[in-house]
Amino acid sequence: MDNLNIAGREYTSRLLVGTGKYQDFEQTRLAVEASGAEIVTVAIRRTNIGQDASQPSLLDALPPSKYTYLPNTAGCYSADDAVRTLRLARELLDGHELVKLEVLGDPKSLYPNVIETIKAAEVLIKEGFKVMVYTSDDPIIAKQLEQMGCVAVMPLASLIGSGMGILNPWNLQIIINEAKVPVIVDAGVGTASDAAIAMELGCAGVLMNTAIAGAHNPVLMASAMNKAVQAGREAYLAGRMPKKIYTASPSSPTSGVIGT
């Protein structure tokens, strides 16, 4: 089986999805199901004091018994906030250690602050967390994060929520070629072909949220992404034919053409 292995655990799906920006929990549930994802990211936020405790929660829509939760630190702008958030997440999820570390540098671009990211990763790894790390597409930083002990390196394809697709396949290729841990494209995918391209480059997986939640029909797009990731993976494993610029090669026999 061609499984995705993260921190010693096997997953059959190489698509990881976020759970934000959906209309309601029912749409979240349907989209996640259609995506085939086994790993779902969640955010950790202050509870509304005074809210009815019996209100449905995300955990009812996506039972942690069925999905691997990946608590993230989206919205954190310092190593300290990110570490505190994930300690709370670990307590919230009964000692769960697999986490997504994301330390942002700027609210406008949501570009990662790699210096704070590295600081946070150091502390978290020491405390036993299994860190999947969101980072820029800088191959040197990606390598450094891997060497520190991050269990997956997750470079952006383009800015979070931009849907701009894969803007620098060359950097991603360098990161993939050098990596010994799974490289997962996180952020920037806009449509199914972007996901397929990421997988054809040799990414171990793709993580996305807005591309699905922001589609006109999120459930249908989730299904499209499911297929795109599988198609891209198969194409990568199959090994594409070499590109032959200026040397066309017909698929049909050159002899026996009528009239010659």
Partner: peptide, 10 residues
């Protein structure tokens, strides 16, 4: 005190 829950997010 900080009291948190899990919510939808990317």
């Amino acid at each position: 005190l900080e009291i948190v829950v899990a919510v939808g997010g990317g």
